[in-house]
Nucleic acid binder design. Sequence first.
DNA 1: ATTCTTCTTGAACAATGTTCATTTTCATAC
DNA 2: GTATGAAAATGAACATTGTTCAAGAAGAAT
Lengths: 206, 206
Amino acid sequence: MNIVQEESRRDQKKLQRRALLIEIARRSISTKGLKSLKVRDVAEAAGCSIGSVYNEFGDFDGLILTVNRETVHALTTRLKAVPADDPLRQLHGLADAYLGFATEHANLLRSLFEHRMEDDRPFPEDILTMVMDAFALMQTPLLRLLPDRDPGDVALLSRMMFSAVHGIISLGLEERMVAVPPEMLRERLAQFVDTHLAGLGVSRRT
Amino acid sequence: MNIVQEESRRDQKKLQRRALLIEIARRSISTKGLKSLKVRDVAEAAGCSIGSVYNEFGDFDGLILTVNRETVHALTTRLKAVPADDPLRQLHGLADAYLGFATEHANLLRSLFEHRMEDDRPFPEDILTMVMDAFALMQTPLLRLLPDRDPGDVALLSRMMFSAVHGIISLGLEERMVAVPPEMLRERLAQFVDTHLAGLGVSRRT
DNA sequence: ATTCTTCTTGAACAATGTTCATTTTCATAC
DNA sequence: GTATGAAAATGAACATTGTTCAAGAAGAAT
């Protein structure tokens, strides 16, 4: 009951505040949009100084990127929770899960896709990888549905399909330029997936 | 050679500088991205004071929105220039024109879709309308290809299809999260359109 | 030439990201 | 328990950038 615990106690407190800061930032982004996120607001809400935010995340981008990282992670978790028993149902499930996530966390998803780095610093590799991995999740069910096609082809197809779904959803949810009436989005999205699959030679689900 | 001409000369000068300011802002956004656009830079580059920019556009958003407005306009012009003789070819032409515009003016298009208003001011109605009109341009050829479907249905279908194309392109061109290798994007996009049309029951083009 | 309107200017202000010298905290050693 | 040194926290000060506005300049009308 000495070194290790003392250290862990300190670390635990540090981690706890780090989590608090992230949670506050996420809540702010989620409710008021990325543009309204201010260092001072976060620091004040967390009951600490501005400098502490910088100690923890390096700079403001660091905080935003941390939130975005967790957003991709949450999204991925949700997408991976879609049952993989039936490939056709899985594809619909993936599209629907994305829609659900985008509906519930519109501003967080926007923060992920719209945030630009300060100056010309490179976009973090790990986030990039996570997003690409998420967008590749349609590959597995598509491969099962299209066993005769070239796997490399299917890999591209799946990312295209997911990108298309992303486009439909992100524009559809954009309250300012409502491309599709919200209440219809869900069923239209399913219809879109069906149509596209039909175009790929897959018969519709029963 | 008096009142009218004097007035018009003054107005002309004013319009000329307005155009200059817009051009400078557009060039800046186009080359360095929206985030790097600064009032002072624009004013200095145009050889006028900061205040003049405000006189002309009200605030910073005003300048950005003006550039964005012209971006939608240029996009629409380009899309409307696509030959409308053959509906199938037109659909491909629209997708390809959008890709071409997005490739040549990636940052301008991002500015249009990613810019958020200061505070919670509403998004300008006219830009919204122009974007929606642009996204409805697939409706006419689709109606010709699907004469038996409910027109309201086709209206939605066309906006979905355009949104899908938008998603594929905007993610595909995102150098940070390259979902699709750029050199393939063009042909893949055509393939996507074909596939989706096939799903809608339209036979591929010859 | 005078007056009146309009436009222009840029200093000053406000909001906000960032730095860093100072202070505080705290684990460790004795 | 106290001393010590490292690590963290602090917030005043700074830098950048959008915004305002009183004062001045320019131009049109008479």
